[in-house]
């Protein structure tokens, strides 16, 4: 069971490199990173910083999708967490309390999703749709329909600060990726998740607590979305219940799929997700640079996702199998 042939991150990485090269050909300044006041600046740094929230949400989404599910509620959870932060900071609470509350909100939301999916057996799309619909209403309720401005330098540091010249948010997210990777791949937990996603009944017969593993994936995803909500609010120094996390579920799902994790579950590639998220952020930045109106920006994303899912489909695999004699024997 060692298909050493090709690493799963080959294609997403190739896509990212190609996109970066394309940009570099168009404008060499794209790759330039400057050191200003001891802080790193430049387009690549910007992509990392702006892409960190999608990366974070996509990390949780990867595990949910690996169990064969999907979480549509992450965008709403981002909005709720941001709203919680704003209200608590306005009420004079400390940063630690605020952070704990925001992540706790995410955990709570994830538990609700996990309960519906794992315990009650509701299909994931439906179960998470509930929170997706209601969540934005809850976020608006918390901030009473207002956009609350946040005035807290230490809170803002989380998204816009620099640590030893490197932006803090990507550092935090990369650390979380590394931690998740080791927690899953250096223990049996990752294998358990893949087993549940591959065949839940079989995994249960093999003695796995399938329902608990599934629920954990949703809870983890909720916590990631909660933290992403903190970063989103800190980035714009405000809680915007209407716009925060808008379409984030789509970007996260796209990042996961582009990164090589199968939507059918049973397999996940954490590093691939990170690359997928960066690929999507680079695509967005590229379009800004080329002067494409932001409104049209979804079109290339849509074509990308159709292309990638076609490449992953069995039928196309078989067609291409004839062209490139690849193993991948069943």
């Amino acid at each position: 069971m060692k298909p050493k042939a090709k690493s799963p991150i080959f294609w997403p990485l190739a896509g990212l490199v190609a996109l970066v090269l394309l940009n570099a050909v168009h404008d060499l300044g794209f790759l330039k990173i400057t050191l200003l006041d001891g802080h790193l600046y430049g387009v690549p740094v910007d992509i990392l910083t702006q892409g960190s929230r999608t990366m974070l949400v996509a990390l949780g989404m990867t595990l949910v999708i690996a169990t064969g599910g999907v979480d549509l509620s992450v965008g709403s959870v981002v909005a709720i967490a941001g709203a919680v932060c704003a209200v608590l900071l306005q009420g004079g609470h400390s940063l630690a309390v605020t952070l704990a509350a925001a992540i706790g909100t995410g955990l709570l939301a994830g538990s609700a999703n996990g309960l519906l999916v794992a315990r009650l057996g509701v299909q994931p799309i439906v179960a998470t749709l509930i929170l997706m619909v209601a969540g934005r209403g809850v976020a608006q309720l918390i901030v009473d329909g207002q956009v609350i401005i946040i005035k807290s330098p230490s809170f803002e540091f989380l998204a816009n600060g620099f640590l030893l010249g490197v932006p803090f948010a990507p550092l935090l997210v990369i650390a979380l990726y590394a931690a998740t990777h080791f927690a899953l791949r250096r223990t049996a937990l990752g294998l358990f998740i893949e087993a549940v996603g591959d065949n839940e009944t079989a995994s249960r017969f093999a003695g796995l607590a399938a329902a608990r593993i599934k629920a954990l994936a949703y809870i983890f995803c909720g916590a990631c979305a909660g933290l992403a909500g903190v970063l989103a609010a800190a980035n714009i120094r405000a809680a915007d219940a209407y716009r925060a996390g808008e379409n984030m579920e789509l970007d996260a799902i796209f990042a996961v799929v582009v990164g090589g994790t199968a939507l059918t579950g049973g397999r996940f590639v954490i590093l691939g997700t990170a690359i997928g998220a960066l690929l999507i952020q680079t695509l967005t930045t590229t379009m800004y640079n080329l002067g494409v109106p932001p409104a049209i920006a979804p079109v290339p994303k849509a074509l990308l996702i159709i292309g990638v899912s076609l490449l992953q489909s069995e039928k196309v695999g078989r067609w291409l199998g004839g062209l490139w004699p690849k193993k991948e024997a069943a």
Binding site: I253, V299, K301, L303
Partner: peptide
């Protein structure tokens, strides 16, 4: 191609919205 409906129609949503704008 036996692709998941929600993913393909999500892409369709992006296409149609982008085309509209």
């Amino acid at each position: 191609f036996r692709l998941p409906p929600f993913l393909i129609t999500l892409a369709g949503m992006f296409l149609a919205r982008g085309a509209g704008f």
